[in-house]
Structure formats: C-alpha cells, structure tokens
Design a protein around this nucleic acid. Structure first.
Lengths: 351, 351
DNA sequence: GTGAAAGCGCTAACAG
DNA sequence: CTGTTAGCGCTTTCAC
C-alpha cells in the first residue's frame, strides 16, 4: 500500500484558476462557477465575458478540485483484462456510448491478464475514487472484488463470481457451450474435444457446459478436455496436447476465438485440414472469426450489449435506484462458418 | 454483512479518511500521512498501529485530495485511437511496463477513431490534470495538440504532426513503405498499387513513401493509389475500387494489416487468390499477420518500443530534464510471409 | 519524534 | 445577481 514516493521539484507553469477567470472577466468567483456548470440566472452579458476570459486564458476546470468537494468524480473506472482480444473492443464501445449519454467519463486500465497487476489496476482506480467500477473478465480473486464492493458499486462482466456483493453481466456460457457441442454432434461428430480457458474468467463454466452437453448427448465416453487459455498460445499448446493423444478428436471446441485460432495453427502444422480432418468451433465471434481466411464457426456473445448493460447496472446503483445485486445473463447464438463440417469418413491417423 | 447506506442519491458512503485512521491508531494525522508516504522517522510501534488501522478500516488514500495539494497527479493519460487494432496492444504494453518502473499510473481513453470524440477524450484527460499526455495515432487537428501542449507535456505516437510543441515517436513510414514496394518489385512486380489510410494518422507519409519508392524504381507509370482507411472495411472498399479499374495490379501495398485483410477479403470474393494472382503487403506486423491462415507479409513496427520511448519522452519533460522537442524515429523492418510471391505469368482478367 | 495550522481549486450556502 | 464563508482530504510547514 505505501507507494514509492520520489520527491521531485514541483514542475508546472501556473495553470489558471477560477479566480483568474473571475478577475479577468471582472466578476465574482461564484459567478464563474455558475457559468461553468451551466446554471440559470446569469446575465448574457456576464456569461459572455466569462466565456471569453476562459477562452483567452485557456482555462480548464480542475475536476480534481471539483471532485473533492462534491465527493464524486463522475468517472467510471473500467479494468479490462486483455486489450489484445478484439472482443473487448466491442465491450468498450457499449460502455462508452452509454456513458456519454449519462454524463459520465470513462477511464480504462489493464493488468494484461496478470492477476497481481489487475489487482493493482483496480486498486489504482479505487484510489482515484471512481464512482463505479466495471471489471471486464477480471482474473483476480473474489476477495479483491468484495473489497472493492465495500466502497463503490461494482459490476463484473463475463465472469462467474461467487462474490455476492457485485452486479454481473455475463453471457450464458452453459448455453453457449451447448450450442457449440450440439452443432458438432449434429454434423455427425462424436469425438468432440474441448480446449479450456485455464484459469481465465468464465472458463470453468464454459468447460462445465461442454461436459454437460456431452453427457446429455450420450457422448460421455468421448469426453476429452485439455488445459488451454484465452490466448492464441493457449490454444496452440492445447491442440498440441490433443494431437499427442489417441484417438484424435474429429472436432474441437475451443475456449474462445483466439484460442481456436491457435489450435488451428497447431492442426495445420500437423498436416491436418480444417474442417476436412478436424472441425473447430470458437467462442466470442470476434472480428477474427469473420475473416474469410479463418471463417471460424463461433458462439456469438454480444459484447456491446454486455458493456451497455454493465454500465446501466452501475448507474442504477450510483443513482441509488437499487441496492440489491442484479445479475444479467445474455443469451448467446451460434454463427456457423467454414471451420466446421461433417467428420471425415476415414479419420486421419497422424504420420 | 457489509453495511451500506441505502438509497441516498448522489454522494454517499462514509469512506474513512486519514483522520479516522489517526484516531483509530491513536496518533496524529501527520503521522499517518508519513507512514502512508513511507517517510523515515516513524517509530516501528506507531507504524504498526497505523498499518493495522488502515487494514481494519479498509482505508485507501484519496489520491484526489493528494493531487490537489501536490498539484500533480502522477497519472499519465493515454488517448488511443483504436482499441480494436491489436497494434495498440503492443504500444500499451510498452507504456505500462515503463510507467510502473517510474512510479506513474496510466489511464486510457479512446475516441474510437472519431476526431470529435478523440478531442473530448483528450480534454477529459486534461481536466483530470494528468501529468503527461500520450496520444497514440490521434486523428485530431494539430491545433488540439498545440492547445494541450500549453498545459502539459505531450508526446504523439505514430503520426507525423506539424505541431512543434510536442515530442513524437514514429516509425519511419517512408522507409517502411519503401521496404514494401521494393520487396514487391524484387519479386518481379511492376503494377504495384497502394490502398492508403485515408485521413488516418501517418497515412499521408506512408502514401508519400509509396510514391517516392515507385518513382525511384522507375515505375512512375504504374502508380495507382486509392483511398482506404486503417480499418478492415477501408481495405475492403479500397480493393473493390482497384478491382473496378483496369489493368489489375499484381501487388497491393495496404496502409496497415487490418486494411490488408479487408483487401484480401475483396480479392477472394472476386475469385482472385493471394499470392498467386495478387500479392498483398500490410503494415504493423500485428498478431493478425502471423496467423497461419493469413500469413501476411508486413512491415514491422515495434509497438512496445514506440510506447516505451513515448513514456520516456514524457518523463524527461516532467522531470524537467528537457524542454525542447524530441522526435524519435524507429526503423521498421519487413517480415516476409506467404501473401507475397512472384506475379502471375499471365495476369488474370476479371470474369 | 508530534500536533496545529495553512492552504490546493473548487462548490455550496448564504448574506447582501 | 454578487461577494463572503466554509469546507472536501490531504500534504507541508513549523513550532513544540
């Protein structure tokens, strides 16, 4: 908690304050404040003078000072676990659009998928006294989330948490996994393997959905899962693991799109074609899946909706409209593309 | 059971202050402050008492208040033009790593490639009184940058700006474009077209690099440029435009990777194969280019280095070590993959 | 070592 | 409408 504090010479050219503006416009401090906040009851003449002074001085209200007295920042903090996953681009869009409507500014953070760094990022946002916290697929411990809840409204996106204090918005991972598995089964596959998301947010439920779907379809004997991650490398390694076993699966359900792409890479290196030899299904339906060269069948979750709903949860709490947890679940759909097809008539043996 | 104030409009929770900690630990306010800042000269006994009180109260220093008195936030603001482009993931990594070393926190923002929104995002960071501003490929007007410079150190990444007040870190777009064009020429191409980045940051220079390289190679008669953008759709539309003209180019140099991918999509739809019928070169060498299904020849610019250098520029300014502009240019390299090859013996005609 | 006092730039509540 | 007066939570003197 104690931060390293190197005391350095104070920098800075003196930035103009509200007092400078008042003097320049020859009015009172409070009048300037009123103009800035757009309050009623300022004569057009004075308003004009103030605005001009602001312009000339390149004055900018100090939201720090404002926040201190109002004890609210009108800032929403968003911790994003992985900036490299285009899925979060959608989530961010949803958040931003809604935030603008509601008069909040949004500031992002990331811990680059490293739990400790993510915790630091969250802590940093909390010290900033954000009015609300949105955690997009955080990998931190539940206790971290609980601690945050004690101070500020929190909504967790795309992760199933046992923390009871926060709101959450997720897609229905069980249903999504079922869509993926059933799709493969309908094509005639029985040996459907799963590369999971390791310790990533939501990975456990997605895995559980796979297991349940397999059992429901009477395929429990063909259940094969290997550990992966929500990254390309995770998918690559997971697929390599699958390739080292026998018999080979004819279909692979990967934890998410980038994981699926990593898996496809491993398959290709092994001389297996998709979908002729092995079908592959991803999750998220990111822009990656739509690339014609990849054309990945994928479970779609609606990132922008998830982001928007998350923001609405936070907003309800901030406004005091609600103080009991809300858990929103968005239904996923399946988008079928070229990476899945019927299983090969004569499954290919390696080598 | 967390005790929370229920339904109280805007300002709400009684967050503990430094005074609460002092009372609980039975010491003075200043003593607590000293402990928090890790100052010397506090008895171990007192320090212990303070730390325990902090723990028990779930106290968190209010950086807002701290910033107000210190007149510096120790926050660096980063405006990122496009969160969907994985290239910026690299840039962010570089920034974060260095920032942590230097004891700064980093907060991100985006205007989603819309100039007005980007300006608002920058303004928002400025109102927050960030100690430094990093603009990653901003699309705003130079005047916006100049206005920001008057208040805080600014570094612009990956865009050539005529604003003289800010530092900048770019890759050498002229050289990069030349690498791309020469590579195609060496393979035997003469009809090398360019899909540019429209009004995107750095697009103009990349285009200029293309033009110069073509002339230098004596290919001025084959110069063809169409307008695109730094997006998949931009590339798609640009390629469609090329396809509507005659003669068809045998190689395309696209403004960046996602643009190239969009172009490949259009080519594929038209029944043209890459590289058998048309070679394609991208720029950025993002993770997308490395995907085996895409395997895009691309000019590599080192995003993490660019981010790190940007942060160092800012830091020098903040520390008062330098007050004249520094312009850093990073040399790009070319990564050759499967999307480029010799031109077809008999160029394919459409339909 | 400790505690009291003076602000940082702003808003809010009143009195003129 | 204006000007004055209190703070917001913290750091920073400067006495003790």
């Amino acid at each position: 908690m104690p931060r390293r504090n190197v005391v350095k010479p104070a920098p800075s050219q003196p930035e103009p304050t509200i007092l400078d503006v008042a003097r320049k416009a020859r009015v009172s401090k409070s009048l300037v404040s009123m103009v800035i906040r757009g309050e009623e009851g300022v004569s057009p003449k004075n308003r004009e003078a103030v605005l001009q002074a602001i312009e000339e001085l390149n004055y900018r209200p100090n939201v720090i000072a404002r926040s201190l007295v109002q004890r609210r920042t009108r800032i929403l903090g968003v911790m994003i676990s992985d900036l490299r996953n285009p899925f979060f681009g959608d989530v961010v869009s949803g958040i931003q659009m809604r935030a603008e409507d509601l008069g909040y500014r949004v500031l992002f953070n990331t811990g680059e998928r490293v739990p400790n760094l993510e915790e630091a990022a969250i802590e940093s946002l909390l010290e900033l006294r954000v009015d609300g916290l949105i955690l997009a697929a955080p990998r931190v411990d539940d206790t971290v989330i609980e601690r945050a809840c004690r101070v500020v409204p929190v909504v967790v996106l795309n992760r199933d948490t046992s923390a009871t204090c926060s709101d959450s918005v997720t897609n229905d991972n069980l249903a999504g996994a079922r869509l993926a598995v059933e799709h493969c089964a309908n094509l005639g596959h029985t040996r459907i393997a799963h590369i999971d998301g390791g310790s990533g947010a939501g990975a456990g439920v997605r895995r559980e959905g796979y297991l349940r779907a397999m059992r429901q379809l009477g395929l429990e004997d063909s259940i094969v899962t290997v550990e992966g991650a929500f990254t390309e490398n995770g998918g690559y390694l997971g697929a390599r693991e699958l390739l080292s076993r026998s018999p080979l699966p004819t279909a692979i359900f990967a934890a998410n799109d980038i994981c699926a792409i990593g898996a496809m890479k491993a398959l290709e290196e092994a001389g297996l074609r998709t979908p002729a030899d092995v079908s592959v299904v991803g999750y998220d339906n990111t822009s990656l899946a739509t690339l014609p060269q990849i054309s990945l069948t994928s479970v779609q979750q609606f990132g922008a909706d998830i982001g928007r709903l998350g923001l609405e949860c936070i907003f309800e709490r901030i406004e005091g409209k609600r103080s009991t947890p809300r858990h929103e679940v968005v239904a996923p759909t399946l988008v079928v593309r070229a990476s899945t097809g019927p299983p090969p008539a004569k499954p290919k043996a390696l080598r």
